[in-house]
Measured scan of single mutants.
Amino acid sequence: ENVVSAPMPGKVLRVLVRVGDRVRVGQGLLVLEAMKMENEIPSPRDGVVKRILVKEGEIVDTGQPLIELG
């Protein structure tokens, strides 16, 4: 699984990683606000951040690609 998608609609509050960062399974990639709750979106696997597909403040839909892992 190379693309991390939004599990719910919401607003991207914070991106916690940068392109080139090594991440571990379960590590927070970004914080999504949904229904006034902050939800940290975890990495599904170990890898390297290849691309960040959203910006802070952006509104996303369920299933929208957020981050690509390499």
Rank of each mutant, 00 (worst) to 15 (best):
M35N: 04
V4E: 13
M35K: 04
R24T: 10
K55N: 12
E56H: 07
V48M: 08
P42K: 04
P7Y: 08
L66K: 00
V17H: 08
G20Y: 02
K55R: 02
P7E: 11
Q27Y: 02
V25Y: 15
V23L: 07
D21A: 04
L32M: 13
G10F: 09
V25E: 05
G70Q: 13
K36L: 09
N39H: 03
V15P: 03
R22Y: 02
R45M: 14
D21T: 02
R51F: 15
R51H: 15
R22D: 02
Q64S: 07
E68C: 01
E33P: 12
Q64T: 10
L30N: 02
G47K: 01
Q27G: 07
R45I: 15
R14K: 03
E33Q: 15
S5N: 13
D21C: 01
E58I: 10
G57M: 09
S5T: 11
L30V: 09
V25G: 15
I59H: 09
R45N: 15
I67M: 14
I52W: 07
L29E: 00
L29K: 00
N39Q: 08
E58N: 05
V3H: 10
L32D: 00
R45K: 15
K36D: 05
L13P: 09
V23H: 09
M8H: 13
D46T: 10
V15K: 04
V25Q: 15
L13F: 12
L66Y: 05
V54M: 08
K50H: 12
M35A: 03
V23Y: 13
V49A: 07
S43R: 00
L69N: 04
V60H: 08
V54S: 07
M35G: 04
L30S: 05
P42I: 14
P7F: 06
I52T: 14
G28K: 04
L30M: 12
V19T: 04
K36W: 07
P42N: 10
G28I: 12
G47L: 02
S43K: 00
K50N: 13
R18V: 13
G28R: 04
D46G: 10
P42C: 01
D46V: 03
L53D: 09
R24P: 11
G10N: 14
L32W: 12
V19M: 06
L30R: 00
P65L: 13
M35H: 11
I52L: 06
E68V: 02
V49D: 00
I41H: 09
P44I: 14
K11D: 15
R24K: 12
L32P: 00
L30T: 13
V60I: 05
N2W: 03
A34T: 09
T62F: 14
V4D: 04
N39I: 08
S43M: 15
G26F: 08
R45C: 01
N2I: 03
P7D: 09
G20S: 09
V60G: 07
R51S: 14
V60P: 03
G57S: 05
D46R: 02
G63C: 01
Q64E: 05
G28N: 06
L13Q: 09
V23S: 10
E58R: 12
K50Y: 14
P42Q: 14
E38C: 01
R18P: 08
V17E: 11
P9R: 13
M37V: 08
